[in-house]
């Protein structure tokens, strides 16, 4: 399995191997660290390309298509991600580097595995999205099945979530939640003897919701997700859409 890590990070393995390696990496810290190490080298390969002259017709063609598309309903822009300036201890998962040393190994892996999937979703056409979502669901399901993870389910079977412990707190991912109603957001609650503490808010992007918290999961015996007004609430106000 170890011999496949470099090929995996390059995307140079079959879809079956992709899943196998991913499942292995989740449980093997050594391979996870190796994958993390390669990811920087792989993402920098794009920078070896030297720019060429822009084809004469490129700008005009793009502008024409953009205007034609503007007649369609506008795409809702994803709200800016929360940063930690409010001191909530919560930051969004980041795909950006530097990965090294900033997040725990498990979180770094998630960035490689989960967001690689999210990126693929943005680059494919609609008819492929269903397959991508199925793969995304399977990934979240796998994460929920790893050691120490908590699995969240909803009233319908559509949505699932997973909360994973890391060295520095926890990482949460959810698949299958619809966009929240306008001026609302999803909020994650950590339950200690039934008492909820906020772990932060998120808005799903490409079907995937995620957040990272630096609150320890040690005494947490359950996790729940509710819909709350934008910015989050001090305490949950509605029924959970996902819970352990």
């Amino acid at each position: 399995m170890k011999s496949l890590i470099a090929a995996y990070v390059l995307g140079a393995v079959s879809p079956e191997e992709m899943e196998e390696v991913r499942a292995h990496i989740i449980s093997c810290e050594e391979c996870m660290a190796e994958a993390d190490g390669y990811s920087g080298a792989v993402s920098s390969l794009a920078f070896s390309v030297a720019p060429e002259a822009i084809p004469d017709t490129l700008i005009d063609n793009v502008m024409r298509e953009a205007r034609a598309g503007a007649a369609q309903p506008p795409v809702k822009a994803v709200p800016p991600v929360a940063d930690d300036s409010d001191g909530s201890g919560v930051t969004e998962l980041r795909r950006s580097r530097p990965i090294y040393g900033i997040v725990a190994a498990a979180a770094a892996l998630l960035i490689v595995a989960v967001l690689a999937g999210a990126l693929i979703t943005t680059t494919n056409e609609l008819d492929e999205t269903r397959n991508q979502l199925a793969a995304q669901r399977e990934r979240v399901e796998q994460l929920a099945g790893t050691q120490g993870a908590m699995r969240l389910g909803g009233p319908s079977d559509e949505a699932i979530g997973a909360m994973l412990p890391t060295d520095e707190g926890g990482v949460f991912v959810a698949h299958g939640l619809d966009a929240p109603p306008s001026n609302h957001t999803y909020q994650v609650w950590l339950l200690d003897d039934g008492q909820p503490t906020s772990a932060g808010t998120f808005d799903p992007e490409s079907g995937l919701g995620s957040l990272q918290t630096d609150r320890s999961l040690e005494d947490v015996d359950g996790v729940a997700v509710t819909v709350e007004p934008e910015g989050g609430s001090p305490a949950p106000t509605g029924d959970p859409v996902l819970s352990t």
């Binding site: 793009v62 298509e65 953009a66 598309g69 795409v75 809702k76 822009a77 994803v78 991600v81 940063d83 969004e92 980041r94 950006s96 943005t122 680059t123 992007e205 490409s206």
Partner: peptide, 13 residues
């Protein structure tokens, strides 16, 4: 066009 149609897919962070 992908960037134009789905600006939310790019996040400067």
């Amino acid at each position: 066009l992908a960037l134009w149609r789905r600006p939310g897919s790019y996040n400067s962070d």
